[in-house]
Simulated scan of single mutants.
Amino acid sequence: MSHVTIIRVLKTSIVLGICLIITGHTLIISNGFNEQFGINGIIASAACIAVGILLSLPTKIYLTILLMEAEKRYTRSHTNE
């Protein structure tokens, strides 16, 4: 996979993870959802949050890649002087 493709996949994973976390949280705090589905609704909401957290883990990897690229640019610009 190319560098651009990896970054695109990481960005998509981050956005999808954050959306799932927000969705799961919204479902847990809504009274109608919990009353209608009971314990299964709570489990589904918690599962959304858990999967969202797993998908948002690549944020650390993505930020590390960005910092490494910034450090490369900084090193190149200061070694040429």
Rank of each mutant, 00 (worst) to 15 (best):
L63A: 09
L20S: 01
I28P: 02
A44C: 07
R73W: 00
F33E: 07
S30F: 10
L67V: 12
A46R: 04
N31K: 15
L66G: 00
G41I: 11
Q36Y: 13
L57Q: 13
A44T: 06
E69W: 04
G24R: 13
A44Q: 05
L54G: 07
G32Y: 10
A47V: 04
E69N: 08
I42N: 05
A47R: 02
T26I: 07
I42T: 06
V51A: 10
I43Q: 08
L63P: 09
A44M: 12
C19N: 06
T23I: 11
L54F: 13
I42M: 01
L55I: 04
E71M: 13
V51F: 07
T64P: 03
I29P: 10
I61H: 09
C48E: 04
I65P: 09
S45Q: 14
C19A: 14
G41H: 06
E35C: 00
Y74Q: 15
A44I: 12
G17R: 07
N31S: 15
I42K: 05
L20K: 04
A44V: 08
G24N: 01
G38Y: 05
I61Y: 10
L27H: 11
S56W: 01
Q36F: 05
G17M: 09
L20R: 01
I39D: 03
M68S: 15
T59F: 13
T23H: 14
Y74P: 02
G17D: 10
I39T: 06
C48F: 14
G32P: 00
A70N: 13
L66A: 12
A70V: 11
I42P: 02
E35K: 10
I39L: 11
R73N: 11
N31I: 14
A50I: 03
T23A: 09
L54H: 05
G52M: 14
C19W: 09
L63S: 05
I49D: 00
G52S: 05
I39P: 04
I61P: 05
I18P: 10
S45M: 04
E69G: 12
H25S: 15
Y62G: 02
L63T: 12
I18S: 08
A50M: 12
I61M: 07
N34E: 02
R73E: 14
I28R: 07
L55A: 03
N40C: 12
G38Q: 13
A46N: 15
F37M: 13
S56Y: 03
A70R: 15
A47P: 08
E69H: 11
S56C: 15
A50P: 01
Y62M: 08
T64H: 11
I43G: 13
E35G: 07
G52L: 11
Y74D: 11
I43P: 00
A70G: 06
I49T: 14
I29A: 09
F33M: 10
N31P: 03
E71D: 12
A50Y: 01
I61E: 05
L63Y: 07
H25D: 04
